[in-house]
């Protein structure tokens, strides 16, 4: 169930509570960024440093144990690139087509 952003007063949940936990996942913050992280998997050691230090929880682990940033949420802060012990992440300009 996705709550309406502009409900009528009758549609608004009781006491304007939000009954669905963690529904901010519907709210994509990826368009905030100007730079995006690019992971060089040939250098990645799969340590998870990028994942633990991401304030957005944008990093996701794939089936091979690599971590990659979900760009729908990544705000492009660059902490991951800075902290990566293998220095395998670079911040690159987002190209808008």
């Amino acid at each position: 169930m996705k709550l309406k952003e502009k409900p009528t007063w009758r549609e608004l949940p009781f006491a304007c509570c939000i009954p669905e936990p963690g529904n901010s996942v519907y709210y994509k913050t990826g368009d905030w960024k100007t730079l995006k992280p690019v992971v060089d998997k040939t250098k990645c050691i799969k340590c998870g440093t990028c994942w633990i230090f991401c304030p957005e929880y944008a990093y996701e682990e794939d089936e091979y144990g690599y971590f990659e940033s979900n760009l729908e949420y990544c705000k492009g802060c660059g902490i991951c690139a800075r902290e990566c012990p293998a220095q395998c992440i670079t911040m690159e300009e987002e190209v808008v087509e």
Binding site: S24, V25, T29, P55, K75, I79
Partner: peptide
Amino acid sequence: EYFTRGHRACQGCGPAL
């Protein structure tokens, strides 16, 4: 994760982390 993505903290927010 019990504090989920899609929050609106600034880039590189220490408290959100």
